[in-house]
Simulated assay, not measured.
Amino acid sequence: MPRRPSRAVPTVVVPGWGGSGPEHWQTWLEGRLQEAGRQTRRPAFDDVDNPDLAGWLAALRAALADLPADGYDVLAHSLGAVLWLHHVQVPGTSPRAARVALVSPPSPTTAEPQIDEFFPPPLYVDAVRAGADGTVLVASDDDPYLPEGIAAAYGVPLKIATTVIEGGGHLNADSGFGEWPAALNWCNRDNLAFF
Rank of each mutant, 00 (worst) to 15 (best):
L102C: 11
V14L: 07
W186N: 01
W56T: 08
R99D: 02
V12F: 00
I150C: 11
D190H: 05
A36L: 14
W186A: 01
H170T: 01
P144D: 15
W25N: 05
A127S: 13
R41F: 14
R42A: 01
V74K: 04
G168F: 09
A182W: 11
V48G: 00
T110W: 12
E30A: 13
T162M: 08
L33T: 13
V138T: 06
S107P: 07
P51R: 00
V82L: 02
Q39A: 14
E166T: 15
T27I: 10
G149K: 03
S78L: 05
P68I: 12
A59V: 04
G31M: 11
D143W: 15
P113K: 05
L33I: 11
P95R: 12
L102Q: 00
V90N: 03
T163I: 02
E35G: 07
S94A: 15
A8F: 14
S175R: 04
P157K: 08
T135R: 01
S107H: 00
F177A: 07
A62Y: 00
G21R: 14
D47L: 10
A153C: 13
A44M: 12
D73F: 11
L79K: 12
L64W: 00
V156I: 09
R96K: 07
G31S: 11
H87G: 02
L158Y: 14
I115R: 05
P121K: 07
T40W: 07
L33H: 03
V82M: 03
L60M: 04
A58F: 02
W186R: 00
V138S: 01
L171K: 06
L146I: 14
E117T: 10
S107W: 00
Y145A: 14
I160P: 01
V9Q: 12
A97C: 08
A69P: 09
E35A: 15
A44H: 15
V9W: 08
A101F: 10
P43Q: 07
L75V: 14
A139Q: 12
T40G: 12
W56G: 14
A58V: 11
D116I: 04
D190W: 06
R189A: 09
I165Y: 00
R38H: 10
N50W: 01
P122Y: 15
L75M: 13
R41K: 09
V74G: 06
L53G: 03
I160G: 00
V12D: 03
G167Y: 05
L192S: 02
A81N: 11
R3E: 15
R99V: 02
Q39M: 07
P43C: 09
H87W: 05
H24S: 09
E148S: 15
D126E: 08
L146M: 14
G31Q: 13
Y145W: 13
A63L: 02
F45R: 06
P106M: 09
Y154C: 10
T135I: 02
W25G: 06
A130M: 01
S140D: 04
T40D: 09
A81Q: 09
A161T: 15
A173H: 11
V128D: 11
G92E: 01
V90M: 00
D133I: 05
W84G: 02
G16Q: 04
W25Q: 03
A127Y: 08
A8R: 15
A182Y: 05
H87Q: 06
G168C: 08
E166W: 06
P5H: 02
S94W: 02
E30I: 15
E117H: 01
D49F: 10
P22M: 10
G155K: 09
